Amino acid sequence: MTSRRVTLIPGDGIGPEIVSASMPVLHAAAPDLEWDEVEAGESAYERRGVALPNDVVESVRHHGLCVKGPMGVPMTGYTSPNSRLRAELGLWCNVRVASSFDGARTRFPGTEIVIIRDVTEDTRGAEQPIGPDAGVKLKFITRRGAERVARYAYSYALHHGLNRVTVANQAPTNRATDGLFLAAAMDVAEEFPDLKIAGEAMDVLTMHLALDPLAYQILLCPSSYGGVLAGLCSGITGGVGMMPGFNTDGERTTVFEPGHGNAPKYAGLQRANPIGFLLSGVLLLEHIGLDRAAKQVRTAVADVMREGRTLPVDQGGHATTNEVMAAVLAAMR
């Protein structure tokens, strides 16, 4: 293949150790990829006085591809570098993938659910306290935003050989906002006659997910519901440490990252599960057409999980972060 460069952000907290452990696997699977490692998050703030330096943003913008570890948001000091990165690059769509592997802590083997949400609208943004004992937050939905994320979700379904999309909403009680989101999504559905697309209220949907998650493939939703559903689906399939994901502008720029946070209290303890980060790298490989390499890594992860001797701590095992990735690397050979 022609050499291609990808921005790499180790992040902070557990980020540097899960990234360091996982990169030998990605190097082995795709040796022609080149990595532009840059510093962002806590270490960048301590050294340079800014958590997201402009050269980091420019690296991602230039390459159009980034794989990153988690970055935290302290109570004081600086605002979220994750949010700023999304805003600077116009990354409006968040995708997370919940997959259950044999050997993972799950009661529902075979489950794979993709959560797709817009991260620019809904309840993100304006809020304020009203005196010491009350507060208000605005919920904002536009037809343009709802149609855009719906079209992305339906196209994603077709591209990945899926045929069912569920539109999560609370339209019966939020008619002006969720009602608009659902109506716009169903209008776009007419462009995709080969898909089975239906709305489902959040209270009913969460119950059905807990009972029979295998009935679902893609969950399309506004931002706040997407966060709740991603947490629920990660729990159903084994835990957030196993969840990969990405943020994208739907065209040129995509940032791949695990669905969990930076968990600073576990930093340096070698207890963190690196599989969510590694599987985010797998999503990158698929995104740029390296399907064979992606399958090789995913199969190795599945083999290690199924064999059960080198499981991460959050999956009931005793293996360190480095030991888990060493086992995955050995399974690839």
Rank of each mutant, 00 (worst) to 15 (best):
G241R: 05
D212C: 09
D212A: 15
F277M: 00
T310L: 12
H208F: 05
G261K: 10
V304Y: 04
P213T: 02
P264Y: 07
A302S: 06
K265A: 13
P274Y: 05
R271L: 11
K265W: 14
K196E: 13
E251G: 07
M202Y: 14
C221R: 06
A263P: 09
R292A: 15
H287A: 10
D203S: 10
L205I: 12
E200T: 07
A272M: 08
F246A: 06
A300W: 01
L219F: 07
E251T: 14
E251L: 13
T237K: 10
A294E: 04
G238Y: 10
T253K: 00
F246C: 07
L205M: 13
E191R: 10
D249L: 06
V282S: 01
E251D: 15
L205N: 03
G239I: 04
D303Y: 05
Q296N: 14
M243G: 01
D203F: 12
Q296V: 05
H260Q: 14
R271Y: 10
H208S: 10
G231H: 12
G259F: 03
M202T: 14
H208D: 12
P213Q: 06
L278V: 07
A302Q: 05
V255Q: 11
M242E: 08
I288H: 15
K196L: 11
C233L: 04
H208Y: 08
S224C: 11
K196F: 04
I236D: 00
D291Q: 12
N247G: 09
V297L: 03
I197Q: 05
L195D: 04
G239H: 11
E191N: 13
G231I: 02
A263K: 03
P312A: 09
S223M: 10
G289Q: 09
G259Y: 04
V228R: 15
P312Q: 07
P264C: 07
Y266E: 11
L205G: 02
R252G: 08
M243R: 00
D291T: 13
